[in-house]
Design a protein around this nucleic acid. Structure first.
Length: 456
RNA sequence: GAGGUUGUAGCUCAGCUGGUUAGAGCGUCGGAUUGUGGUUCCGAAGGCCGCGGGUUCGAACCCCGUCUUCCUCCCCA
């Protein structure tokens, strides 16, 4: 009985063409990091549950894929916890390992564990899959790649500037027609909450603000009202909805708005510093925008918040990041500040596919296919094939003496550029025939010299 | 986790109010063509109609459950 082939929800197979396109994105990202002096690392697919649990909030914990203990270990199951309906504790007793949920927490663990082998500031990049037990949706999967770059052990805002340059480099190289790099600062958000007398409700306030472009002004106001903010607060926040103009204009507006908040002014100063560094050293294609509604990842970001949106396509952010003071505090090393970004390779892929940005020759087939007429002639073709490969071209010999029709169809389907005929007829004449698949034209060469005169 | 939606051939989809043996296009394979592909013509293979239960003389179609698809929340890349 054969079973119906299927893969788990939220996962994908990648066909040869898909892989080539994905590799282009990955290599563009790693090249960019590499050129800025970042070093590659890798961490295991799964970590100890204790490393991951509790780091992403209750929502996050729910979305972590856990690995069931195997063998005798299942005996450790805490049946008392089950009986008393303590499901989290019961789950913990069944599972000691979990698939990584992102690359940041494993990186923090990595830095602490290898602190004596690293020299700081440590700049690393990492391109590996992560897993989330999320409900799949457009552009959202249960297994997807993250491409992270972080600097740990340096407070300098020059790191933020550099990471923005990396983003610009990557997305410009991939030929995205345009993209906006949105900047905000956690301190500005704290300042806003402070001047609105809502410091204790910072998270609810910013989560609502974050939805401005999605649900509009009225939507944000309704949400704030629903959450019990009083109307005087809502009124005091309204001016922010009108924030328009250039980066400088927005800063000058905010410096009035936040003038009573020390922390808010500090955040503005940081934003201004970062922005000023691009005056004489401009970005290639990226446009910087100050967006006070940006609030992603609020749980651990403490300074800069970065998010990138592609133009011309309706799609969530394709890159995000920010600064988190005390990245490694959870693992026992205090005072190491980190700042990092994460590219969403899958979304970049979707955008490039939608806009037709992948180069056409990416998936071009082998340069030459040697048709197989007989064992003896195929042996000669195999020798030639190696010579072609030594020229840096792709060559293959058809593995069996199938009908020519089948061999040519194979060449056609695979996008082979040239096909070489060397059968009994050609061998006796000391010739080869080269056929250009696209045009169908055929050329005869002498068997001893075809390779040097072939321009394929 | 909440709400909605989808599931029929490898793919995209028809299938009437419940009524014989479930269809088409594309793709695949074979032939026309024993040494020439992409076009054309002919032919063939390929279906527990998502899965399990129920209603009925009778179910792809109605009901329940379950899984799955896509979407909106939540959250996020």
């Amino acid at each position: 009985m054969s079973q119906k082939p299927a893969i788990p929800k939220g996962t994908r197979d990648f066909l040869p063409n898909d892989v080539l396109k994905r590799k282009l994105i990955f290599s563009t990202i790693s090249d960019a990091f590499h050129r800025f002096g970042y070093q590659p690392i890798e961490t295991p697919s799964f970590e100890l549950s204790t490393t991951l649990m509790g780091k992403y909030g209750d929502e996050g914990d729910r979305l972590i894929f856990r690995i069931l203990n195997s063998g005798e270990k299942v005996r450790k199951a805490d049946l008392e916890a089950l009986a008393s309906d303590n499901l989290p504790r019961f789950a913990n007793s069944l599972s000691e390992k979990a698939l990584r949920y992102d690359l940041t927490v494993p990186f923090a663990r990595f830095v602490v564990q290898h602190q004596n082998e690293l020299s700081f500031p440590f700049k690393r990049y990492q391109i590996q899959p992560v897993w989330r037990a999320d409900r799949p949706q457009h552009g959202r999967y249960q297994e997807f790649y993250q491409c992270d770059g972080d600097v740990v052990g340096s407070d300098s805002l020059r790191n933020e500037v550099e990471l923005i340059q990396v983003i610009d480099q990557v997305l410009s190289t991939l030929n995205l027609p345009g993209f906006t790099i949105k900047l905000n600062n956690r301190k500005v958000l704290s300042g806003i909450a402070e001047v609105c007398n809502a410091s204790d409700q910072l998270i609810q306030l910013t989560v609502a603000l974050d939805k401005l472009d999605k649900i509009g002004e009225d939507g944000v106001i309704n949400e704030l009202m629903d959450k019990g903010f009083d109307s005087s607060l809502v009124d005091s926040i309204k001016p922010l909805f009108q924030l328009k103009g250039s980066f400088e204009e927005r800063i000058s507006f905010l410096s009035t708005f936040l003038s009573q908040s020390e922390i808010g002014m500090k955040g503005l100063e940081e934003l201004g510093y970062i922005h000023s560094k691009f005056k004489d050293n401009p970005l290639k294609k990226g446009q910087l925008e100050l967006d006070v509604t940006l609030a992603r990842g609020l749980n651990y970001y403490t300074g800069a918040i970065i998010e990138v949106k592609a133009h011309e396509v309706e799609m969530g952010s394709i890159c995000g990041g920010g600064r988190y003071d005390d990245l490694t505090g959870l693992f026992g090393v205090k005072g190491l500040s980190g700042v990092g970004i994460s590219f969403g390779a899958d979304r970049i892929y979707d955008i490039m596919e939608t806009l037709g940005l992948f180069p056409a020759d990416l998936s071009s087939g082998p340069d030459v296919l040697f048709l197989n007429f007989s064992e003896e002639e195929a042996d000669q073709c195999a020798i030639w094939a190696n010579a072609v490969r030594d020229l840096g071209k792709i060559a293959e010999v058809y593995p069996s003496q199938a009908k020519l029709q089948k061999q040519l169809k194979y060449a056609n389907d695979k996008g082979v550029k040239w096909v070489l005929f060397y059968g009994e007829e050609e061998r006796q004449k000391g010739m080869v025939i080269l056929k250009q698949m696209e045009s169908g034209e055929q050329y005869a060469y002498s068997a001893s010299a075809w390779l040097s005169s072939w321009e394929g």
